[in-house]
């Protein structure tokens, strides 16, 4: 399987990268670790004539407790014991991404912006042609939920849910300048599902920032999948909380692998603040999260099972946080 020809650019600064992006507006992809983009290119999914490799851009590097450069390799983040101590849920998630070989090349930014996945999208050109393509690539209809408006491909990153639960912010740089937004805001919850993010043209995720509050929280991430490596999440449940002797000071829960974007459930966690995190409350909360999610049939496990497991995995993730906080049920 050879790649179709493209022009590869390798800027050495952010400024140069953005300049290239402007020059090739509409006809390029950024290339981070390549472990998601290049398989998709080999399958002729949404090819662009220009690739802008970000591996030589120093501004996208660096890792500390407050700032993680988007081009940090997952394997390097995984090895960082200080990070693991500060954000155990983030360490959980890192260890669950794909395989050690993918993590050796894959990056933080790449995982946050991993292309959404679907049985009808992640297929060869031949396969998709035999079905008349789909809404997300070259076609005009969705085969999962038959209609022509919205794509239901599944968000399959492991890191976003836990970082969102930790109140992480994304630092973005684009031709129009820099901005910082809550990480969850880069995903387009209201969109058509075809694009996986709402970044502006040429905009790059430069880094992820973690607030001081995140270090006061215990966190956890649990992933449902068929095999303990390789597989994308069929469901990823992240929780982060600051507990004061079992009473909730702050609590955030986010899930991935279920819908087109990762999702945080502030409206469901808000009533728990100030309350004792009892098993009963936790069960009711997990049940409510389950009722809120709408997986579709485009991954290996059936959607009703993934939904049912949302209740279990969310509950267990919060229990793990409770355990890590040293709080009792």
């Amino acid at each position: 399987m050879h790649l179709d020809p493209f022009e590869l650019h390798r800027p050495s600064s952010l400024e140069e990268a953005l300049r290239l992006a402007t020059a090739h507006a509409g006809g390029f992809d950024y290339l981070a670790g390549g472990t998601d983009l290049l398989p998709n290119y080999k399958m002729h999914l949404n090819l662009r004539p220009h690739l802008i490799a970000l591996d030589a851009v120093a501004e996208l590097r660096g890792r500390g407790l407050e700032r993680l450069g988007a081009m940090e390799r997952l394997a390097d983040l995984e090895r960082d014991t200080e990070l693991a101590r500060a954000y155990p849920g983030f360490a959980d998630a890192l260890a669950e991404v794909a395989t050690p070989l993918v993590r050796a090349s894959g990056t933080l930014g790449g995982n946050l912006l991993v292309e959404t996945r679907c049985f009808f999208f992640n297929q060869s050109h031949f396969w998709r042609e035999s079905l008349g393509y789909c809404l997300k690539a070259e076609g005009d209809r969705c085969h999962v939920v038959p209609q022509k408006e919205r794509c239901y491909a599944t968000f399959s990153g492991d890191l976003a849910p836990v970082l969102m639960a930790l109140d992480a912010e994304a630092e973005l740089a684009g031709p129009g300048g820099r901005r910082r937004v809550p990480l969850g805001a880069i995903y387009d919850a209201a969109g058509d599902g075809i694009r996986r993010h709402r970044l502006g043209p040429g905009e790059i995720v430069v880094a992820v920032h973690l607030p001081a509050a995140a270090r006061a929280r215990a966190s956890a991430y649990l992933k449902l999948r068929v095999r303990p490596s390789f597989d994308f999440p069929e469901l990823g449940a992240a929780a982060a909380a600051e507990l004061d002797g079992g009473r909730v000071r702050s609590l955030a829960v986010a899930v991935g692998g279920l819908e087109t974007y990762p999702r945080r459930f502030d409206e469901l966690t808000a009533p728990l603040v100030g309350e004792h995190l009892s098993d009963d409350r936790l069960r009711a909360f997990s049940e409510a999260v389950m009722r809120a999610v709408r997986p579709v049939h485009n991954t290996f496990l059936a959607p009703d099972y993934r939904r049912k497991m949302t209740r279990v995995y969310v509950r267990r993730a919060v229990e793990k946080v409770r355990e890590r906080s040293g709080a009792a049920a």
């Binding site: 472990t35 290049l38 080999k42 070989l101 993918v102 050796a104 090349s105």
Partner: peptide, 27 residues
């Protein structure tokens, strides 16, 4: 597999294990 899903093509790049099927040679 040519898609990073088997590990048969693993090489070392500056000592790090790397999937050669998903690494552009120029990089």
């Amino acid at each position: 597999c040519d898609l990073g899903t088997c590990g048969c093509c693993t090489v070392l790049l500056d000592g790090r294990p790397t999937l050669s099927c998903l690494t552009l040679a120029r990089l």
